[in-house]
Amino acid sequence: MTAFALGAKARAAGYRLRGFDAVGSTNCEALAAAASGDPGGIWFAALQQTAGRGRRGRQWSTPYGNLAATLLIIPDADASAAATLGFVAGVALNRALCQLLPETSIRIGVDGADGGGQSQGTRIALKWPNDVLADGAKLAGILLEAQKLDDGRHAIAIGCGVNALAAPDGLPYPATSLTELGTGRTAQQVFETLSDCWVEVFGLWADGRGTAQVLQYWREAAAGIGSPVAINQNGQIVRGIFETIDDTGRLIVRADNDARIAITAGDVHFGATASARS
């Protein structure tokens, strides 16, 4: 076992932790624990994943020294409310990384999304639906997976991957790491900060009753709101202006004819690169 530790707030809130040097997938570990009857409230954290996965079945590479962390929870909320936990994780991860990354001038990313969101002065921004950007390049990603339990409830595995030491090679999009951004923060330090930020934002969410407040915090940290956007939905391209996310977390695009289009899934590209990439 490697030297991961929970933050003080997470310990006080009763969270548990299993740390690994390397593991196949922290999400798989979490879902296996749920199937074995674990009540939830446990983190699985590793410095390397050998069989990690991302959104829509894609591979998620975790080179050694980066952070792969998954929280297993069994919320007292219906499925529609539980689906918004990705935004809870996004806000928590955004807060953690903002604390760890030095504040300097913001650079415009090659995808046309700067690091400021709507709150200027920070290099970190949230990209719909599940990425965290630094200076416009991908720094972290989030993956939610659900598993129905015998009693009818759903166990939720909330996976967070952060490029602490290095960004993976050969990606089709710009990526960066905390090392490249000029901070020597380790995966263990990122995890400890994240575990405390999670407690704060999850408390606001309050089994779905505080979803509106969490979504507002997400909007305030969002990349690309008010900018041109293209969304690739399995080869079908939707273009327009990224107007907002609605009260269920759908991306709202204003098309050229002023129609509002609600997007539930797809690959998002901003600015001038949207047409080229799509």
Rank of each mutant, 00 (worst) to 15 (best):
M1I: 09
M1F: 08
M1W: 07
F4T: 05
G7F: 14
K9P: 02
A12W: 04
A13V: 06
R18M: 08
D21F: 02
V23A: 13
S25H: 11
T26F: 02
N27Q: 10
A30M: 03
A32L: 11
G41R: 01
L47A: 04
T50E: 08
A51V: 03
R53H: 15
G54V: 07
G54Q: 06
R55Q: 14
R55M: 03
R58W: 10
Q59L: 12
S61A: 15
P63G: 04
P63I: 00
L67P: 00
A68Q: 09
A68Y: 07
T70M: 08
T70I: 06
I74P: 06
A77W: 02
D78V: 02
A79M: 13
A81H: 11
A83N: 13
G86C: 10
V88P: 03
A89P: 03
V91H: 09
R95S: 15
A96H: 11
C98E: 13
Q99S: 14
Q99T: 13
P102D: 05
P102K: 05
T104R: 15
S105A: 15
I108P: 06
G112A: 10
A113K: 14
G115M: 11
G117W: 06
G117N: 08
Q118E: 15
S119C: 11
S119N: 11
R123S: 03
L126H: 00
W128S: 06
N130P: 07
L133A: 02
D135H: 11
D135F: 01
G136Q: 00
A137M: 02
L139N: 00
L139A: 00
G141W: 01
A146R: 12
A146W: 07
K148N: 10
D150K: 09
G152F: 08
G152R: 01
H154N: 12
A155Y: 05
A157C: 05
A157P: 08
A157H: 05
C160D: 00
N163H: 02
N163F: 01
A166R: 00
A167I: 00
D169T: 14
P172I: 02
P172V: 03
Y173Q: 01
P174M: 08
T176D: 00
T179D: 02
E180D: 08
T183Y: 00
G184F: 00
T186R: 10
Q189H: 04
E192M: 14
L194R: 01
S195C: 06
S195Q: 05
W198H: 08
V201P: 04
F202A: 15
W205M: 05
D207H: 13
R209C: 09
G210L: 11
Q213C: 10
Q213R: 14
W218M: 05
I225R: 06
G226A: 11
S227V: 08
P228E: 11
V229N: 06
I231P: 01
I231G: 03
I231C: 04
Q233K: 05
N234G: 09
Q236V: 14
I237Y: 07
I237L: 12
R239W: 04
F242S: 12
D246N: 12
D247Y: 04
D247A: 12
D247M: 07
L251I: 08
D256Q: 15
I261A: 09
I263C: 07
T264D: 13
F270C: 13
G271N: 06
A272R: 15
R277D: 11
